[in-house]
């Protein structure tokens, strides 16, 4: 339970973590946000991330893994720079969410949980993302795209490919 002498995180993130653990009655409450924010910076939760977070919180690496493996947004392998998450749950399914998924598969040339060779995109079929009334919906990293059609989807992907996509962190 300490601030490690050396950190694998950027100074800004390390400073953020130093503060985060003090916000709660117990340090461990910072675990889930720390994992997610680490993933945002590192791209995935590497062994080094696990080790450092374990030290920062004061728990074992096993504890960290027990927790991180529970949450579906946390991953231990890299994905594309833009992770395209297509919702196919009921409301989206009724509005052809599977059509959007198929379209993305075709356009990106990859399947579920795969990454394009250039590492730019990865694709994932996801559960309900809370955009049911604006279905079909997709999240690219943290940004929502609603009321999609294959054509709109193409435009969105094109924007990201061209570096014009939204990047909320």
């Amino acid at each position: 339970m300490s601030t490690p002498a050396t950190t694998i995180f950027s100074p800004a993130l390390a400073a953020r973590f130093d503060k985060l653990v003090t916000l709660y009655p117990v340090r461990r409450s910072a675990l889930v946000p720390m994992l997610l924010y680490s993933q945002d910076e590192v791209g995935y939760i590497s062994d080094a991330v696990v080790e450092e977070i374990a030290v920062r919180i004061g728990i074992t690496p096993l504890d960290v893994r027990n927790v991180l493996s529970y949450y579906s947004m946390l991953r231990t392998k890299p994905v594309g720079k833009y992770n395209v998450q297509v919702c196919t749950n009921i409301s989206c399914m009724l509005k052809d969410g599977y059509g959007i998924l198929d379209h993305c598969k075709q356009r990106l040339g990859i399947g579920h949980k795969e990454v394009t060779p250039d590492g730019l995109f990865s694709l994932e079929e996801v559960e309900c993302i809370g955009a049911c009334c604006w279905a079909p919906a997709v999240q690219i990293n943290y940004d929502f795209y609603d009321d999609l059609t294959p054509e709109k989807m193409d435009k969105v992907l094109e924007d990201y490919r061209a570096g014009r996509g939204k990047e909320t962190l």
Binding site: T60, P61, L62, D63, R65, N66, S69, Y70
Partner: peptide
């Protein structure tokens, strides 16, 4: 504390440290 539970749902598994 050498054993934990990892993953969730039907993928849940007992994992060593």
């Amino acid at each position: 504390w050498a054993l934990g539970v990892q993953n969730r749902g039907v993928s849940s598994v007992i994992s060593p440290n």
